[in-house]
Amino acid sequence: MSYKNFPMVPRVIFGRGSFNQLNEILAPKRLSINAPFIYLVDDVFKNNSWLTSRIQLSYDDKLIFVSSKEEPKTSQVDALVEEIILLTKERPSGVIGIGGGTLLDLAKAVSIMLTNNGESKDYQGWDLVKNEGVYHVGIPTISGTGAEVSRTTVLTGPDRKLGINSDFTPFDQVILDSELTKDVPTDQWFYTGMDCYIHCVESLTGTYLNAFSQSYGDMALELCKEVFLNGELPEVESQEKLMMASWHGGMSIVYSQVGVAHALSYGLSYLLGTKHGIGNCIVFDQLEEFYPEGVKLFKEMKAKHNIELPKGICADLIDEQFDIMIDISLSLEPLWENALGKNWEKTITREKLRELYQKM
């Protein structure tokens, strides 16, 4: 039997205020005065000097604000790479992503595409990347996606929504500063936190489960319960615990896989542009038959935090649109196999998937 030999993030710094150490972490990584650092920052921080004033730009360093209103696209990655090549004299010393899962995934993809030929859509899949990317740093400002720790960067391409899954994808350095999550709106906090919770449920109930995944998944699940279900935690403690839940949840799926909720939400995201966190919630809400315990707990958390999910988002779709979502979903074979085993195709038919989508 051959075992997976996955890379991990080699360096991580954790603690409130650790963002202030960014400049000293980057300084030794500068290749030359003509090789800039490129900061990709969520544009919600555009008028937020509390964060941006702490980034020290020198030489030709560039700060590029990027909208995270939509899920990251391959075309967006290619445009950023083009922009960076035009702006810089030499290959950048590093790419630093500051934001939620969208920005972290964009930073990982841009780092890879600066050293690999072609378009980013050519690398959607497993282990297609040939060359190591440029040095890249991930700094999450919201917790839950696990993008800070995963070996994938999930992108919507012209034909499908699929990650660039490779050994070159994980960050070289991650900074986990929970203070950066302090201004996240409640609904966003919930949807992204639930992405982590759903990672745990899918990993812990899947056929790919092993002791490595389970130890991380169990820890993340407990932390999610503390944050979203138990009594009111002090704000700082809640932020730190959710940041750790996101990390552990991401680690849990590194060595296993996600399942039904992700397989279906990729379809929503590709066709309707539904953001990943809320998409997972809309789907998971309908998955009692696959995850009875997990969904029951999810509904309790939803009620506790007064979250109203959008309803009827598939109500007006035509046959062709359902077919697009079903095709995307069925193409994610490892997810279905993890959720239901090798014979998953016996239960997961096109009719079954349409029936599920129609409930959303």
Rank of each mutant, 00 (worst) to 15 (best):
I64Q: 10
D319H: 13
K304S: 01
H248I: 00
Y39E: 03
E293S: 12
H276P: 10
I307Y: 01
T192S: 08
R11D: 06
E222M: 06
K342T: 10
G15T: 13
I85Y: 12
G294P: 02
F65N: 08
G217E: 03
R350F: 04
K275I: 08
E240M: 14
G273R: 07
F65K: 12
H305K: 15
S2P: 04
S111T: 05
L104E: 09
S49H: 02
H199N: 13
A109I: 11
I64S: 04
R151T: 06
L51K: 10
V9Y: 06
D183W: 07
G17V: 14
R160W: 02
V201Y: 04
N230V: 04
G146V: 04
I278N: 00
N306V: 01
K161N: 10
L204P: 05
F190I: 10
K352I: 03
D323F: 04
V283C: 06
L114R: 10
T186F: 09
T152L: 03
N165A: 08
D61H: 15
R54D: 06
K311E: 13
G294L: 10
K302W: 02
M244R: 06
D218W: 00
V184S: 02
P36W: 14
T181F: 03
Q124K: 12
D177S: 00
G118K: 06
D42T: 07
E119D: 06
L114H: 12
L332I: 13
T74M: 07
E226Y: 12
L223A: 09
K69H: 08
L103T: 14
K296V: 05
S2Q: 14
F284T: 00
I84Y: 13
G125H: 07
K225L: 13
G206C: 04
S32A: 15
G279K: 04
Q124N: 11
G97C: 11
F19A: 06
A79D: 06
I282C: 00
V254H: 12
D122A: 08
V81M: 01
G206W: 06
V129S: 05
A263Q: 00
K130P: 10
L242Y: 06
L297Y: 08
G125M: 08
L103P: 00
Y270S: 07
F19H: 07
R54C: 08
E289F: 12
W189Q: 08
I282W: 00
V137T: 12
P158V: 15
Q257C: 13
A35E: 13
V95Y: 12
H136L: 00
E148Y: 02
F322S: 06
E237V: 15
V95G: 09
S246A: 15
Y357M: 01
E132S: 12
G125D: 05
M325P: 05
Q124W: 12
M1I: 13
T156H: 01
E235I: 15
P140H: 11
F298C: 00
V174C: 15
N117Y: 07
Y270M: 10
M8F: 14
I98M: 03
E351Q: 11
S252L: 04
E226Q: 15
G279L: 10
T145E: 01
S53F: 02
T156R: 09
N131K: 01
Y270W: 05
S75G: 09
Q76Y: 08
S166N: 04
C224G: 10
G146W: 05
